[in-house]
């Protein structure tokens, strides 16, 4: 249900761009106006979402503690699973963000004959997820060559490494192969594992198809259907210098690619894709486990009017003495 809906939605997007540019010649709309709207929605939406999260109080530390907490010197402290200092938290976050460490622990559960419940390690999700995210990052960085007059050396180096197999012309990029394989795996996994399929919603399939659509149109442009690459850079430079131009003869496939990318950007702040910002704000990851050593005051505590024992004794000292009660201060 969610699958069909999402597939139709993405195909409709493709047809809209195809009709809009191929049929109605709305190059300016699809090449300039929608991309601008998309980047604005992305940045503003992203910022507001994160600010919204920042308003939520953090009463005390709730890190997931999957290792030994710091205690006596002769008990081994598990620094990254049960961080104790900010430095260790940074280490934990880096491992999480760059290597998806907690996903590495992913397990699968099966009901075997017997009936008997069996658990096993399952690294494929981690591997495909990591391959997908890293390829995506490299691809985004590679695209920066369209947006800078002097392409940064780092971007050129990444591009050189990505194409170092020197297959064909234009050179085959390794990440193009990896991203398509990984996204396809992630999709198939969602469909064929019954439990995963059961919990999959349009919000899961839609971004997957968007990303697959972006990758496929990109691959088509680079290796199969020629487009006017220099014209595309002129368009991109026009966008970033705020002097938009729409060069002739770019090819409709580019506008389809751009339209799906714009859709992804606009959809981003309202979707599960916000885990890009959210991972940095996960209380179970980004807090040191120091509840026992440091007092964390509940931020929504109202001021309690207290009457300490000293003040009590000051007030009633005479009466207490009279009735023979012991007092601390004479």
């Amino acid at each position: 249900m969610g699958l069909g809906f999402s597939l139709v939605a993405v195909l409709t997007l493709v047809l809209i761009a195809l009709g809009g540019v191929g049929g109605a010649n709305l190059q300016y709309l699809f090449g300039v106006i929608i991309p601008y709207a998309a980047i604005a929605t992305f940045i503003v939406g992203f910022t507001l979402k994160v600010l919204g999260w920042a308003k939520v109080p953090v009463p005390f530390r709730i890190p997931t503690t999957s290792g030994q907490m710091k205690s006596f010197p002769w008990i081994n402290h598990d620094k990254f699973d049960n961080p104790d200092t900010t430095g260790q938290v940074v280490g934990r976050m880096l491992l999480e963000v760059l290597l998806f460490r907690s996903l590495f622990r992913n397990t699968k559960t099966e009901l075997r004959d017997g009936p008997r419940l069996a658990y096993g390690s399952d690294k494929w999700l981690w591997l495909a997820g990591l391959a997908f995210h890293w390829s995506f990052l490299v691809i985004v960085l590679r695209h920066l060559r369209f947006f800078f007059a002097d392409v940064p050396v780092l971007v050129q180096a990444i591009e050189g490494l990505d194409g170092f197999l020197q297959v064909g012309a234009p050179l085959l990029y390794i990440t193009d192969v990896v991203i398509i394989s990984a996204v396809t795996y992630l999709f198939i996994r969602r469909v064929i594992i019954p439990q995963v399929r059961y919990i999959s919603l349009p919000a899961d399939y839609f971004p997957l198809f968007l990303i697959l659509g972006i990758a496929i149109t990109g691959v088509l442009m680079r290796y199969f259907i020629r487009i006017h690459v220099v014209g595309i850079k002129e368009l991109a430079m026009g966008l970033v210098t705020l002097k938009p131009v729409v060069p002739e003869g770019i090819g409709v496939l580019f506008y389809i690619h751009m339209f799906i990318v714009s859709t992804l950007r606009m959809y981003f702040p309202f979707s599960k894709l916000m885990h890009m910002g959210g991972v940095f704000l996960s209380p179970t990851r980004n807090l040191a486990n120091n509840n026992r050593r440091q007092r964390h005051e509940n931020p929504w505590n109202y001021d309690v009017k207290v009457h300490t024992y000293e003040a009590y004794e000051d007030e009633f000292r005479e009466k207490m003495k009279e009735s023979g009660l012991p007092v601390e201060k004479e």
């Binding site: 920066l144 007059a149 430079m237």
Partner: peptide, 13 residues
């Protein structure tokens, strides 16, 4: 890209 692009728009080939 916007900030650097405004500073140095570059010329088309």
């Amino acid at each position: 890209p916007f900030i650097l692009g405004m500073a140095k728009p570059g010329e088309k080939p």
